[in-house]
Write a protein that binds this DNA or RNA. Structure first.
Lengths: 230, 230
DNA sequence: GTCAACATTAATGTATCCAATTATGCGGCA
DNA sequence: TGCCGCATAATTGGATACATTAATGTTGAC
């Protein structure tokens, strides 16, 4: 009897090596270590990671499918340029899908997670550094979706948070600590709706939260604050 | 001055070779030539396409990111199994994002496209073969979104149509020519709302269209009609 | 007779090498 | 001076060969 390994498990490690490289590059891009638009040479990365170019190529392809890298055949790879139009598009999509994720999630969410969310909510208000805020805000929202039993949706959402990271950072810096009170109020209302497990209300609140941010992004001129990429 | 090729253009041909292989495999999977769950051997494909295993691997990775293939490290690749839960999840997502795509699209849509859509709508009603229906229905909906100026969204939607293709085929066979009158009525109403460029109405109609289909998929037992994949 | 451990086999993952394509720099010409 | 074309260099794409890992079948002991 054939008992070959069943392809069920989310063994998301592809070639293992390439996956590790992709993880590292992804973290670097999100941290802002690579300027958008800069060229990425396979051999250079291969040398840095102590491998051949093949795992590097696989990693770059992964990142391309996530929208973090752009590949041009026979030419090379570039860190994806920031694009305000793409950012706005993604926010419009997020306005539709994240309320779905949240409403599905709060139906299954355990009390420990709710407590953890409340804690994150408080930490966000207490945060003073932009990088801390970004990290906490991301953790708050993504954790709030985690109980959703919709793996495809969750993967999509995380991908969207990644590709718009530069804009969130620029926007956070722009509004500063003073302009954050709106965000805090929105978070508190969302948090309370989660506690009540009010699926209708959370959806409206979250949609407003994302939509308001999008309109702010469109209104302000972030061209000098977001890494250029031209 | 460096005038290196700018990474703007949607040169979607990646390694060219691997992209061609991916296209062919994708078409084969959607056409139902490969049973879900069957193992795919790199060497076998390499021989069939007259290449080495490397372009094959890249193609398989592309298809994995699209959800059509499952890769397990150091083990192998399988045609993705059909999964009714995943299918339902995707329909729930589609209920949210396709109305967005359509409402954005009808704002820019030219008259020629509207005429083409009406033509497709009529062809769908006249279709007698399941495969014809699937092809026309897909073309109708995807064309209706095309003017949306939201490339990321459109890519996502097409990917979702691909991963649920088997279920649409099974469902179409199940309901047969007689059960299609609901679909035709829905299409007619959507078509009319497109003509009026009524963004609010199309969204409701399309959401209902997708939602009703999802509920039907959940209600019926398609386990014998959709390729098993176990 | 069943289970466990080991050797064998087959597949994937990676490194090295070669080919094809593209970017660059020089030279000629209008 | 500016532009076009060709030769050169650099980089990526692909093929072959090797290393590594997982599956398989056998053997042995309990």
């Amino acid at each position: 009897m054939r008992t070959e390994k069943s392809p069920d498990g989310p063994d998301k490690d592809q070639g293992v090596r390439s996956h590790a490289i992709a993880m590292d590059l992804r973290a670097g891009i999100l941290a802002g270590l690579y300027a958008p638009g800069t060229r990425v040479r396979q051999e250079e990365l291969a040398e840095r990671y102590g491998t051949s170019r093949i795992p590097v190529r696989e990693a770059l392809r992964d990142l391309e499918s996530e929208g973090l890298v752009v590949l041009v055949p026979n030419s090379g790879a570039w860190i994806a340029k920031t694009d305000i139009n793409e950012c706005v598009e993604i926010y419009k999509i997020r306005e539709r899908i994240e309320p779905l994720a949240l409403s599905e999630s709060i139906r299954n969410m355990d009390e420990a997670t709710i407590a953890r969310l409340a804690d994150l909510c408080a930490q966000i208000e207490a945060s003073t550094e932009v990088e801390d805020f970004l990290k906490l805000d991301r953790e708050f929202h993504l954790l709030s979706y985690r109980a959703a039993a919709m793996p495809t949706l969750l993967t999509m959402i995380e991908r969207f948070w990644n590709t718009t990271q530069h804009y969130r950072r620029a926007y956070s810096r722009l509004i500063g600590k003073e302009g954050q009170w709106i965000i805090h109020s929105e978070h508190r209302l969302i948090m309370e709706a989660i506690r009540r497990r009010d699926g209708v209300d959370v959806q409206h609140l979250l949609e407003s939260h994302i939509r308001r941010t999008r309109l702010q992004l469109q209104a302000h001129d972030l061209s000098g604050l977001v890494p250029a990429g031209k």
